[in-house]
Computed example of a mutant assay.
Amino acid sequence: MADSDMELSAPELSEGDFLRIDDPHFDTDNVAVVTGAASGIGRATAVGLAANGLTVVGADIDGEGLDDTNAIAERFDASGRFHGVETDLTDDGDVAAVVEAAADEGDVRFVANIAGMQHIAGIPEFPMEKYDLLLDIMLRAPFKMAQEAMPHIEATDDGVGAIGNMASVHGHYATKDKAAYITAKHGLAGLTRSIAAEGEGTLRGFSVSVGYVLTPLMVNQIEDTAAERGLSKREVVEDVMLGQARTKEMMTPAEVANLFVFGFSSHARHLNGGDLLFDGGYTHTYE
């Protein structure tokens, strides 16, 4: 197939995509905050948690996207509820407000820090305003979210809860032209471990690291990488992105969402400070 014929789009969510777990804390009295809930992995995670019976408060700057996420959860007849709150994650006041909005809905127990962005450029040419924005959204905002949410989790009757951070294979190794993203993802490893260190065992911190996921962000990244390296989109997907992998397909947003569902469940109570690495063999194999 010619590169011009290669169409890239994120897959539509379906009701059968999601892992369902019977868990004592998965009910509408308990609340999960999900950032980046208007699209991609954040949307899938919000819907997946609502499908497991939780009340979900979705934070995103895209209000219309949040409405669409709510419509999907309703269409799937989720046993939980979704409530979107338009939030600028670079604004500390907005972050505090969305956690308070979550507390108004029930007991805050879970946070999924998923919101992210990407910019493709070498370090010498990397715009510092883009660097600052990436770090604000993907590292500073998760820290602030943890700062606001941890007291609420600790104040529940048993102190049980978890904060899950969307990391990446780029939190384990580096490739060129993604320095800000890589810096943020490596920093999330430290934040995750710090949450675990301060969580007294019942409030856990964990991260999720995956390879390439077919999201709207990834579609844009493929196009940007093709332009940056002078390659076709097909060459970017098959040679750059999947070339080192042993599993030769991208993950779907729902597959990543299921890792957060598991990570928040009581089945993962020993996952504390650790990372769920589902990367198709990128990190620990080579030719």
Rank of each mutant, 00 (worst) to 15 (best):
130 K>F: 00
125 E>P: 01
105 E>F: 02
128 M>A: 02
121 A>V: 02
151 P>V: 08
123 I>R: 01
155 A>H: 04
109 R>G: 06
132 D>S: 12
130 K>I: 01
132 D>H: 10
149 A>Y: 01
156 T>D: 03
162 A>F: 05
128 M>V: 13
164 G>P: 06
163 I>N: 02
120 I>D: 06
111 V>N: 03
153 I>F: 08
159 G>T: 02
140 R>Q: 06
112 A>P: 02
144 K>M: 13
122 G>N: 10
155 A>F: 03
138 M>K: 09
147 Q>A: 12
133 L>S: 14
118 Q>C: 11
114 I>A: 11
151 P>D: 05
106 G>L: 11
155 A>E: 13
111 V>P: 01
103 A>S: 14
109 R>T: 07
101 A>V: 01
105 E>Q: 15
164 G>H: 10
136 D>A: 15
121 A>S: 14
157 D>P: 00
154 E>L: 12
140 R>Y: 08
137 I>K: 07
116 G>E: 08
113 N>H: 05
142 P>R: 10
110 F>M: 08
117 M>H: 00
130 K>W: 00
104 D>E: 15
108 V>L: 14
136 D>G: 13
128 M>E: 13
108 V>N: 08
135 L>W: 00
124 P>G: 05
121 A>K: 07
162 A>Q: 05
136 D>P: 01
153 I>V: 15
114 I>P: 00
114 I>H: 12
116 G>Y: 07
111 V>G: 04
127 P>L: 12
134 L>T: 14
151 P>S: 09
160 V>H: 07
131 Y>E: 00
131 Y>C: 04
153 I>H: 00
144 K>W: 09
150 M>Q: 10
134 L>G: 01
139 L>Q: 08
102 A>S: 11
124 P>N: 02
132 D>N: 09
150 M>N: 01
154 E>T: 12
123 I>Y: 09
105 E>K: 15
142 P>M: 09
119 H>F: 14
138 M>L: 07
106 G>C: 11
157 D>Q: 09
128 M>K: 03
143 F>L: 14
125 E>V: 03
163 I>L: 13
146 A>R: 03
149 A>W: 04
161 G>Y: 06
127 P>W: 07
139 L>M: 11
154 E>K: 13
110 F>W: 12
116 G>W: 07
139 L>G: 11
107 D>P: 02
130 K>L: 02
156 T>R: 05
101 A>K: 12
127 P>S: 09
159 G>Y: 01
125 E>Q: 13
141 A>T: 07
111 V>S: 00
110 F>K: 09
159 G>C: 01
141 A>V: 08
112 A>W: 06
115 A>W: 08
114 I>K: 02
163 I>G: 00
149 A>G: 07
136 D>F: 08
108 V>E: 11
154 E>Y: 00
100 E>V: 11
149 A>S: 15
